[in-house]
């Protein structure tokens, strides 16, 4: 569904050249939920922006359903970390969810139905006429998720979507995402700095090295299919996987490109 090959991104400016991504190769299959983790400053957001077509790669390419991405492709939705800045404050919640559907020329009645379904799915069926700034942070991020879901995307990209909300809200939103993913089977790529979150959510965790970034580890998460905040997180296997990922990230920080010494085999 999503193929990233040899993706390289170099920022140049004012005599400074920064190689953010050296060469990323990554494939996400249809219906997969992949989490990308890496040490801070490793270019996670750059990777996501290149995949979303918001940044042009220096070399390599991204293909969505076989077509090269050279701008934001139709059929791709993105949820950003900064929920407060990604909703249109002059529109109501419903209008925010509806706006992309209008641009997609979805007919009126179908649009209304999609908006209502999406808001109901994130537990905001009654908040449609409110403005985003009247809602809490967690609710605002739900609106952003509803907007993405209503868009009926082939691929959903999420950039640290739960990093800016409190712990309880975060757990709720994680389960909300898992529920939606189970129900709709949207191919999802989620970037996070939180190892626990990555292991909890994903079927596959991709670990990036420090910049200049390459894929350091591609880990299959063999936890039971149905995740639960308490049961899954107290599973010994969860602790093993998280330690494994953590070891890779710590190694990446100190000595990029080298496999970590002393980490257990996953």
């Amino acid at each position: 569904m999503l193929e990233i090959t040899g993706l390289r991104k170099v920022y140049e400016g004012r005599g400074r050249v920064v190689e953010a991504l050296r060469g990323i190769d990554l494939t996400v299959e249809r219906g997969e939920l992949v989490c990308v983790v890496g040490p801070s400053g490793c270019g996670k957001t750059t990777l996501l922006k290149c995949v979303a077509g918001l940044l042009a790669p220096t070399a390599g390419q991204v293909r969505l359903a076989g077509r090269v991405v050279d701008g934001p492709p139709p059929g791709m939705a993105v949820v950003f970390q900064e929920y407060g800045r990604s909703l249109f404050p002059w529109l109501t919640v419903s209008q925010n969810v509806e706006l992309p559907l209008r641009e997609k020329r979805v007919p009126g009645p179908r649009r209304t139905a999609l908006v209502q379904q999406a808001l109901a799915a994130v537990g905001l069926a009654d908040a449609g006429s409110a403005h985003p700034w009247q809602l809490s942070g967690g609710m605002q991020q739900r609106v952003a998720i509803a907007r993405a879901v209503a868009y009926e995307p082939q691929v959903l990209l999420m950039d640290e979507p739960f990093a800016a909300v409190d712990a309880q809200t975060r757990a709720d939103l994680e389960d909300l995402l898992l529920g939606l993913w189970h129900r709709l089977g949207i191919t999802t790529m989620l970037v996070t700095h939180d190892i626990d979150e990555a292991v909890y959510l994903a079927r596959r965790v991709v670990v990036l090295s420090a910049a200049p970034t390459v894929v350091q580890e591609d880990l299959h998460v063999d936890l039971p299919h149905d995740r639960d905040q308490i049961i899954t997180r107290s599973d010994p296997r969860f602790a093993e996987l998280r330690a494994h990922v953590y070891g890779h990230i710590r190694a990446a920080k100190t000595d990029p490109g080298r496999p970590p010494a002393g980490t257990m085999k996953a």
């Binding site: 979303a52 939705a77 950003f80 900064e82 800045r85 997609k104």
Partner: peptide, 13 residues
């Protein structure tokens, strides 16, 4: 806002 602008681009505005 840059994020708002990116959002608009992603959703085809």
């Amino acid at each position: 806002d840059e994020v708002l602008s990116d959002t608009a681009r992603v959703y085809g505005l």
